[in-house]
Design a protein around this nucleic acid. Structure first.
Lengths: 140, 140
DNA sequence: TGAGTTTATCATATGAATATGCTAAATCCA
DNA sequence: TGGATTTAGCATATTCATATGATAAACTCA
């Protein structure tokens, strides 16, 4: 699996916020609505959203009329930015085999074979934005 | 990370066996040597190797002169086969976002963007064999 | 102001992956 | 045969991601 469970939650929540932003502009969305909509544990999601706030991806307001919203336009938020906010490291590009000491000088056996694909994966995560992932038309 | 820790251990152990097979033919290699060579916990590796034996990727012999060896030529053992032997599932191609109900009829937001890349990752794992990963020349 | 609502934070629980240690079974060889 | 060696298998420990629950802090609005 490319994304952790937490990374998946973060992505789905962000996509939901991108969709809601299209409908209601900058109106904050409450945790309860997001959790129910994407079907994940409410309290845990709350913690994940808070990480996104601290990473500057989301903004939040407390109290009535409070909730979460994207901190910037959807087309400026990449998958990489979201995933990096909640899980570390995003992708071990250095070494597919997980060797801590894998360097160019002493590369692992998979090194040359892995590089090209790792580059594509990284590009995918960096170049795909919430705007790309937002549902257009079709059912919810 | 694309591979789990256990998947990484399995790959590195298999690569080591492929290299040793070139040197000594079908001579079994003991857990101790493999663990020390790739720098992983010996007892845990023992369990991982046993999984590979039960999956038919490795063969094993007990007693003095015993140990582990590839059950077939290195160019017939794909990364996919090894990783699938120790972790499930290899890669959730269905849904990048981890939604359990993600189908063609009701796809997740990332579905079309994810498919092409997932295909490439799958191909990489299926088409790269131990023979490709074996070190040729260079230092150990 | 003060009651109600919502996020923020903390403390803890659960579960799965990872790791360790011991015993059993198989094999070799003197 | 019997002791030594090595994998197989089991039982348990540890660690970390995931999850839950309760309280604190911030905000709204009557």
């Amino acid at each position: 699996m490319l994304l952790s469970q937490t990374g998946s939650y973060a992505m789905r929540a962000a996509i939901h916020l991108a969709e809601r932003a299209e409908e209601d502009g900058a109106e904050p969305v409450r945790v309860g609505e997001i959790a129910e909509s994407i079907g994940v544990p409410r309290n845990y999601l709350s913690k994940v959203l808070n990480q996104l706030v601290r990473a500057g991806v989301l903004s939040s307001e407390r109290g009535p009329r409070g909730g979460f919203a994207l901190a910037m336009p959807a087309d400026e938020i990449s998958m990489a930015r979201i995933v990096e906010s909640v899980e570390t490291p995003l992708l071990d590009r250095r070494c597919l085999l997980g060797r801590p000491e894998c360097t160019d000088a002493d590369p692992c056996a998979a090194h040359p074979h892995w590089q090209a694909l790792a580059d594509r994966i990284t590009s995918f995560l960096e170049e795909t934005t919430l705007a790309d992932l937002r549902r257009t038309g079709g059912k919810r």
